[in-house]
Amino acid sequence: MSENIILAQETDGAGVPRVPYGSWLEDAFDWLTSTFSAVVDGADAALSTVSGGLADLLAGPDALVLALIFVLVGWLLRDWKMALLAIPLMVFIISADQWENAMETLALVAVAAVVALIIGIPLGVLAAKNSMVSNAVRPVMDLMQTMPALVWLIPAMAMFGLGMAAGIFATVIFALPPGVRLTELAIRQVDQEVVEAGHAFGSTPWQILMRIQLPLATKTIMAGVNQVIMLALSMAVFGGFVGAGGLGNEVSRAINTLDLGLGLEAGLCVVMLAIYLDRVTASIGSGGSLAGRLLRTKGMGFRKATGLASA
């Protein structure tokens, strides 16, 4: 450590010594990763296995079969217009011969987004319920969002080496903040009088959360989910620099070889994926989807069973 500190070094400010923040942070990082090496190894194994498995699963069926499934999912989660829109998106990716890469990127995005949401939504709920948590979380989120995204690839690679786990780690960090922020906002925005009514009838904090706050916050939380997925997609491409695979690898190869055609092809495939994921996930909270309508009809049956239809 001491050899890194060169006290005499000059800075542009007269008399202001050079402070070796970098090596300090590096030492801290080394200490963290070596102390928690078991956690890092466990996370590495889990992330690699899950994302690898998912990528294999998506690579399994013929591209057309899978594309058809995506089209149907678009119809189910939104409407026939979404399905119609999905067709050219899928066809473009297949015809650019980037299907397998796109599926690898999709697997990475899916795993990273799920991890980010598993961490982000409960953290957002905690932050909404406790202002100390909120005050502690906010600067961390600011740091995660404002640090140049590519910088996150360095600790990711130091911890996990080259590969998908490193890409997922950096992607989770980059995509997490809107999940936390919008969940906190969503819970705080719930009509206070309705929450008060819950308390007035003797609800426990858990009942208030599950029966009042979360149902009424769903729309805004889903906006957060959408944001998390979109950020995950944009970061997942940078994952190519740490060998996370997928379209990102193509992009970084194109940059290294100055291959404009390949770069644009891979980039456009990312755009196609983005359009698809954005439109599909943006509709989940709105309730206008076919799936939403099906759920509501089912809910209606439930209401008839427990409600007063017979009165």
Partner: peptide
């Protein structure tokens, strides 16, 4: 306090404070 509220105290609110995602019966 929750037990006392459940057992003894009900409340009606100025702006109704109904749960919009539930039916009238619920």
């Amino acid at each position: 306090l929750r037990a006392i509220r459940r057992e003894h105290l009900a409340m009606v609110f100025q702006h109704f404070a109904l749960l919009p995602h539930r039916t009238v019966a619920q």
